[in-house]
Design a protein around this nucleic acid. Sequence first.
RNA 1: GCCCGGGUGGCGAAAUUGGUAGACGCAAGAGACUUAAAAUCUCUCGGCCGCAAGGCCGUACCGGUUCGAUUCCGGUCCCGGGCACCA
Length: 894
Amino acid sequence: MNEHYEPQAIERDVQQQWEAARAFQVSEEPGREKFYCLSMFPYPSGRLHMGHVRNYTIGDVITRYQRMLGRNVLQPMGWDAFGLPAENAAMKNGVPPAQWTYDNIAYMKMQLKSLGFAIDWEREVATCSPDYYRWNQWLFLRMLEKGIVYRKTGTVNWDPVDQTVLANEQVIDGRGWRTGALVEKREIPMYYMAITGYAEELLADLDTLPGWPEQVKLMQKNWIGKSHGVRVGFPYDLRAAGPTSSPSPLEGEGRGEGATGGTIPEQGILWVFTTRADTLMGATYVAVAAEHPLALHAAKSNPELAAFIEECKKGGTTEAEIATQEKKGMATGLFVKHPLTGEKLPLWVGNYVLMGYGEGAVMAVPAHDERDFEFAHKYGLPVKTVIRTSADAVSVPWQEAYAEHGTLINSAQYDGLNFEQAVDAIAADLSAKNLGEKKVTWRLRDWGISRQRYWGTPIPMIKCAQCGDVPVPDDQLPVVLPEHLVPDGSGNPLAKSPEFLNCTCPKCGGAAQRETDTMDTFVDSSWYFFRYCVPGAEVMVDERADYWMPVDQYIGGIEHAILHLLYSRFWTKVMRDLGLTRTREPFANLLTQGMVLNHIFFRKGAAGGIEYFPPDEVEVSRDEQGKIVSVKARADGQPVEYGGIGTMSKSKLNGVDPQALIEKYGADTARVFMMFAAPPEASLEWNDSAVEGIYRFLRRIYGFARDNREALVRGREAVDALAQATGAQKDARRAVHENLRQALGDFGKYQFNTVVAGCMKMLNALTDLKADAGPQAAHEAVIAEGFSLLLRLLSPIAPHLTQHLWSELGYGSDILTAAWPQVDEGALQRDSIDLVVQVNGKVRGQISVPAGADKAAIETAAIADANVQRFVEGKAIAKVIVVPGRLVNVVVKG
RNA sequence: GCCCGGGUGGCGAAAUUGGUAGACGCAAGAGACUUAAAAUCUCUCGGCCGCAAGGCCGUACCGGUUCGAUUCCGGUCCCGGGCACCA
């Protein structure tokens, strides 16, 4: 053994052994229990950041733990290789996204290997490879056949200067990030996947996932958002719309760019959905989205309204922006009829009504809905109270109680009914008039997958002037994405590439053009875990996937709690319905790792663009409380804005590269440090100041083995000598086993920070034991037993050092195949037990009682304690509570 | 704005889920060893009072339930994640 712990040499050596033994390559073994341990694959952004190290270390620790428990463990790895950052890098550096991506993969793969993860690299998948994305295309076509994929219009962010569609991330304060131009909403045709067809099952099957965090299931449930309500029809008649309405059918034609610009019937029904049909008698107006056909119709003869609708097109498309923007509206001059009373209600356009959600129209009951209440007060619309709640709904400001369920009032024949009765009665009456029925709706919307971008899976469709949109035949798959193009920020380079664009129509053989939209990258990540199971398959999946699936443990960031996990569940169910798998749910157990956060610094450019600064390139001044007051860039000394703390990301440049850490201290230190810093599910503000302590801990383990080498070798053989242990030796052995018991429990709960703490305590117990505290043979047996337990317990977290020492001490050639440690119950026994004594809940003393003492003896001993007497003396003892093994509480009066 | 989490010493955290708040570690301070440095070892380390024994306060804030609350309940503030085109 070397005098000093040299992690680089040890790690190189151990990794070579694993490599030579192909230690982590696995195959299907039908008789053996399998365990599929999967970490979310990385986007190859350039270098690993600490969030990756945390994610993959957790996955690797679980992999090695399950392996030591005897299971056939698969841990694969791959690359979520399509996406926006590659295009941004391409624009910046003039390098094709493909080249940038493959370079990043090569570097990050080297980093992952240096961390010593037990990965079966034979199964590596990159989603930008035609062998992978051809199955995106293939399944897309199957879904098209089944009607699960369909076409309709959707809203996108449009940069009028670059003439390009922007991602939400590229819109900053309503402006394009590169041009600073005010972004507009635009309606374009897109392909959709009908995930709403699976809403019921996606909701119900959450109950079949006991291994998922409640938090995540609740988020998904709320996202799917099943609601029971009533669809209500408000009849309208444009001929009776009043003096302002004399629309010329030609006037204004062609200005509405929306696809809904067609004519609408003069008489019809405006449908809305409500979960509060009981308040229908309190509806005082109806509001539609700016893009609603009735709004567009009214705008033809009303320039002011047309201008307002134009204005509504400004601003972002995200729900957050719409929910926080100032609520604005304008009367259309049109009216609709209340379906029950026949009353004339004004029709308004509201910027808070979304065309893509529900019917694009809402009935407004200002007395019992907060948003309607505000809107009505702003525009002087009437408020009619129709529910008796714990507060009368008449005053400004709004009170939450106004929205409660209650008894109907001012509602004619419905007066006195409660919520359920009122909904039933009103739904029945509407139904009799063909103006409504009960209906279940979902908050979940269908998944728009078309992206007007280059670096993604080409959508396998051909546009033919004769035949329309024609699917690419299976035998022409994959539609290969050319890899040499460089985007320039103005639209999709595929649309400017004749070699990609021009093709022949599979139907008529005439000249045609390819669809240039690519798929949302969430498609790529919705089924990659199937592909890992079937390396080299000539089909999408084969029977090998039936052995491995479902994933037994999935690990990834909490930020994926909804979208990625929901899309993956949806795709799995579609694959099942197509007969490709038996799996109903892809992930049996889910661990949502907390985010690794760091400070964010940025500067806004003159054009409105935004420039981020890495935390190590700025100078920060703080006040006495440690709050950041000012920041300067090191490079130019000019001020920089502080953006708070947030998740480490490529785009915000606040990621910390683990490479320096690994090079200085080795992979084991990086791994143990990451696990010790916080429990896996907690978020973690990055700070590497404690890393020295971890290095010190590993060095102490190494030093203990070096200094006690012979004793550790001999003691391992002399198990019988454990029985001779006396006094301090017994105490040390008890401490080892007590901490082992706690650590094994925490291992099972995947609470690795306290596992590491337990390992430290075990080492402390062993190092504190004096060599002359009892018989030498017993000493050697105690430290050898404890050290061998410690090495095995720690091996999933620090695999290199523990493997090295395991073989150095001759405990075995391969710690991977060693038995998982077990507690010796005999070592835990105590002669006496320490109890805390409280008086009225405050600690006043400590007593030690024999292990078998009964309640009466404990009470007597507790009250006899000198300090306890000071507080009990002269007072009546009301009762004494004894919590076995913990404490005694003496309750006194007066 | 809506949905989901979180808030404990100077710092990361722990607490068998209602039973000694601060284990384990970092940082800091004092000391030992050393020509010196590094490494290592010993001690102190939530605040206030006290020579000490010990006492009072303390788990974001306000209130409640309980013999006993970091833990349960009601309310407030702050921070993080998501909000459908970042992945």
